[in-house]
Write a protein that binds this DNA or RNA. Structure first.
Length: 301
DNA sequence: TACCAGGAGAGCG
DNA sequence: CGCTCTCATGGT
């Protein structure tokens, strides 16, 4: 199946720390959306999608990739200051996905103080051990669905620790149990105002402001939600409040007023910019070479 | 080797 | 409140 697309950077989008199961294989991106195995690539401003099972309705894909979103319309609402100009021009075509709430929630519970490569490894193990095998085309590597709350709720903390998630195991287990018991209905949250939706999510074990904001943005499409992690905090302080002590609460207030109605979208550009800009590094600190040390320390003051 | 990673929660003054 | 400490694991 092919879909016409304009300014859609698949690589940046699928590796920008919002989803963790995509991998590049023979020049195409292979992943799982719900119960669908899918393989994606872009050729001549066309998105080409191959699935394992023929489907008449591709809304599961177009919704996930947000193909109907007008990116230019979003970009026009961004502030025209220099940091945003640089962040957006550094990666034209970076998009936000619309993911499954449970998979997104569980993934970000597992994300705390982990690097993206390690988050990917934990989630791969979790799916391999607890997910359902999917139908994949002949010759393709086997792949599983993301395990349901009920499935994880039936595991033990020790089982989950076996997936290398460490102290996050009791959080994931307790949250899975609450959802499996029906104590919180994830689909219902999409109908709430963003502040109430956030309050509901934060009640779950292992879910604080940052993870709640990630789920609101990446799975519920609340574009006003602005997750502030170490990277974005660094970006905001460095670019907008240099040489000043600024607290997290103030950064949230600043973000809510400065970046417009699609602030969360702007956040993704800042996040990607910070991660790719400096020496293609995966670390916000710790210089690679001695010669860079002085410059870096000066810039970070 | 020592330090650190897309945080959350508990304990402290 | 606001700050600090701990939590588990793997990479550099």
């Amino acid at each position: 199946m092919t879909f016409p697309v304009c300014r859609y950077d698949l690589a940046a989008t699928l590796t920008s720390g919002q989803a963790f199961r995509w991998r590049l294989s023979d020049g195409a991106w292979v992943g799982v959306i719900g119960a669908h195995w899918v393989r994606l690539r872009i050729e001549n401003s066309d998105l080409i999608a191959e699935s394992a099972v023929p489907s008449a309705d591709w809304s599961w894909l177009t919704d996930y990739l947000q193909l109907d979103l007008d990116l230019d319309e979003v970009l026009q609402t961004f502030p025209t200051d220099e940091p945003m100009q640089k962040a957006t021009s550094a990666c034209l075509g970076l998009r936000l996905l619309l993911q499954d709430p449970w998979e997104c929630l569980a993934s970000f519970i597992l994300s705390s103080t982990k690097q993206i490569v390690q988050i990917r490894q934990i989630i791969a193990l979790l799916c391999e051990r607890y997910g359902e095998p999917l139908l994949v085309p002949p010759g393709q590597a086997p792949l599983c669905s993301f395990p349901s709350p009920a499935r994880l709720a039936s595991a033990t903390e020790t089982d989950l620790r076996g997936c290398k998630m460490g102290f996050r195991a009791p959080y994931l287990l307790a949250t899975a149990q609450q959802l499996a018991e029906g104590r919180l209905d994830l689909p219902r949250i999409s109908r709430l105002p963003v502040a109430e939706a956030r309050a509901e999510l934060i009640q779950l074990p292992g879910v604080g402001r940052k993870i709640a904001d990630c789920v609101l943005l990446f799975a519920y499409g609340f574009h006003s939600s602005f997750p502030v992690d170490v990277w974005v905090m660094k970006a905001l302080r460095q670019l907008y409040f240099p040489h000043r002590r600024v607290k997290l609460a103030r950064l949230h207030r600043f973000a809510a007023t400065h970046f417009g109605p699609h602030a969360g979208y702007a956040q993704q550009y800042l996040f990607h910019y910070m991660r790719t800009q400096n020496e293609g590094g995966t670390r916000p600190s710790s210089p690679r070479r001695g010669s860079a040390r002085k410059l870096r320390l000066r810039a970070e003051d």
